[in-house]
Computed example of a mutant assay.
Amino acid sequence: MRKRVKKRKGFMILELVIAVAIIGVLAAMAVPNLIGLTDEAKVARIQSDLSTIGTAVDVYYVKNGAYPSSLSSLVGNSSEGYLKKLPEPPDKSVTYELKDKGEVTGAYKGKIYSSFGTTTQAT
């Protein structure tokens, strides 16, 4: 007499629990790294925006012999404007400001970034 071997269909509950635990461990390791990357991306965007605005300020200075009185004076139509529009900061807490000698700054999370390429702690 032959014994029939009963074939399993699907997964055992233990196999599913182990698979979920492994995915949970991997997710726990990945999430903190992803959170830090968003801040780094925002800082990179701020530095890029400051570089763009700083270049427009320099062109304004070369053409007019003086720095602009405000950032809004850089925006205009294609014949007289240096920028189509001011770049929007990546975070609502960031504002771009025009300082002395054509420096443009933006503060984010306790640091002040400059179009001159410097970073300082906010006071």
Rank of each mutant, 00 (worst) to 15 (best):
L14P: 05
R4S: 15
T95R: 12
A41T: 12
T95K: 13
L86Y: 02
T105D: 03
S114E: 04
Y60Q: 00
I112A: 09
A30K: 07
D100K: 04
I46E: 08
T55D: 14
D91K: 03
T52D: 09
V17C: 11
Q121E: 15
V75D: 01
D49L: 08
D91A: 09
A41M: 12
Y108C: 05
V59A: 02
G110S: 00
G106Q: 08
E40D: 14
L71N: 05
L98H: 05
S51Y: 14
V17I: 14
L98N: 03
K111H: 06
L83Y: 06
L86R: 06
A41V: 11
Y82Q: 03
S69A: 13
T38S: 13
V94R: 05
I22A: 00
I23T: 04
P89G: 03
L16G: 12
G36A: 06
L71W: 04
K85W: 12
D91G: 05
E40G: 15
M12K: 15
V25S: 11
K84Q: 12
Y82M: 09
V59R: 01
V57W: 04
P89F: 05
G106L: 00
I53K: 04
S70C: 01
K101M: 07
I53C: 01
T55W: 15
A28S: 09
I35Q: 02
L71R: 04
T55N: 14
K92A: 13
Y82W: 03
G81D: 01
V75A: 06
L14T: 11
G110E: 07
D49H: 07
S51N: 15
F11S: 10
S93Q: 01
K84D: 12
I112D: 06
T119R: 00
L26P: 10
A44Y: 04
G76M: 03
F116A: 14
R4Q: 13
Y60F: 03
S69C: 09
S70F: 00
R4K: 15
V59S: 08
V5F: 06
Y82D: 05
K84I: 10
E97Y: 08
P87F: 02
T119C: 00
S48K: 11
K99P: 03
V94D: 08
K85M: 14
I53R: 00
D49Q: 00
K111Y: 06
I23C: 05
V17M: 15
